[in-house]
């Protein structure tokens, strides 16, 4: 277990930023941490990086309980904030050398390390460039190299792709996947859900300081899709089929658009199969397609965070 958060609480005055947050991230995971603004993502990350003290709860990193200001534990974490701060008059190599020396890595070892990292993040050959002359995308890559300079086991990124153009964002995602393949556990927070869907092995959705949904992307989509409406295309006996749907106790809100029918359905997968059978046998409908509307991560997010009543808690 790379990261284990138990009952983490944090309040800012009367505002409760985190309320019993629980989270577990396995070694080697690429975990997407999703939530609307003010949900508690950054608060969680700041506690993990030692920049904030939790009111209560425990955090374990790589099996070791986290104590505030623990230098040894800090060496296990690499942190990339959402904004890249730049020092004037510093070259890329000097920037990385400085942070390497902050972790006690100096001389040839540091040089070899940052040269490897620059190649890894696609900035090879730019070691003599001044940091403030780099583009935003390059600066973010340099930020990742900086966070990896001491070879941490856990890399934490707080909305790293914010402000990047789509092409640069894609390259950045690819780079993170490569870093993940090298054995680094990554926790990435973002509100751009589509990019998390592309790269993350697991997703956690946080709202109002608590984890409301946690699991693999496939599981989450399947779980949430059961509350999506049924979509069917009916080519024969449409009126009879619609009448049957409106009579059905599990069906609600039937809408028709040509031969496309959309209906809310509160049953499970077996109920879906029975309904399909009834449409074919009782209404004599010729059904071209039948199934739940497939929701993307965006719709999952909206569904989870949009209405408290519809929250699905699926820890673990």
């Amino acid at each position: 277990m790379m990261l284990k958060i138990c009952n983490l609480k944090k309040s800012y005055g009367k505002i409760r930023a985190l309320r019993d947050l629980n989270l577990e991230i396995e070694d080697g995971e690429l975990f997407g941490f999703v939530g609307p603004n003010g949900a508690g993502k950054t608060t969680t990350i700041r506690i993990l990086t030692g920049l904030l003290r939790a009111d209560s709860g425990t955090v374990e990193i790589d099996g070791q309980p986290m104590r505030c200001g623990d230098g040894k534990l800090k060496e296990k974490i690499g942190y990339v904030p959402d904004f890249f701060g730049v020092y004037d008059n510093v070259r890329v190599s000097e920037y990385l050398e400085f942070y390497a020396s902050a972790y006690g890595i100096t001389g040839l070892v540091a040089r070899r390390r940052y040269m490897e990292l620059l190649d890894m993040v696609g900035l090879g050959g730019r070691e003599d460039h001044y940091v403030d002359s780099l583009s935003r995308g390059m600066k973010q890559r340099l930020g990742v190299a900086r966070a990896l300079v001491h070879n941490p086991r856990l890399l934490i990124l707080d909305e790293p792709a914010a402000g990047l153009d789509p092409r640069t964002r894609q390259d950045f995602i690819q780079m993170l996947k490569e870093i993940n393949k090298c054995g680094k556990t990554i926790l990435i927070s973002s509100h751009i859900l589509s990019e998390l869907g592309e790269m993350c092995t697991d997703i956690g959705i946080i709202e109002e300081g608590a984890m409301v949904l946690r699991g693999s992307l496939v599981d989450i989509l399947a779980m949430v899709n059961t509350s999506n409406p049924l979509e069917m295309r009916i080519y024969k006996n449409l009126p009879e089929a619609v009448a049957l749907l409106r009579r059905h106790p599990l069906v609600h809100n039937v809408t028709i658009d040509g031969n496309q029918v959309v209906a809310g359905f509160s049953g499970g997968q077996m109920d879906e199969a029975r309904l399909l059978g009834q449409l074919v046998t009782e209404a004599g409908a010729l059904v071209g397609s039948f199934g739940r509307r497939q929701g993307g991560l965006e719709s999952v997010f909206m569904q989870i965070t949009g209405s408290k009543e519809e929250k699905v808690v699926a820890q673990g």
């Binding site: 920049l51 800090k74 942070y99």
Partner: peptide, 17 residues
């Protein structure tokens, strides 16, 4: 200045006290 450049938090995340 470190705070204005938003580099202070990064420094505080390192081993440095």
């Amino acid at each position: 200045g470190e705070r204005e450049r938003q580099t202070l938090d990064i420094l505080l995340c390192t081993r440095l006290r």
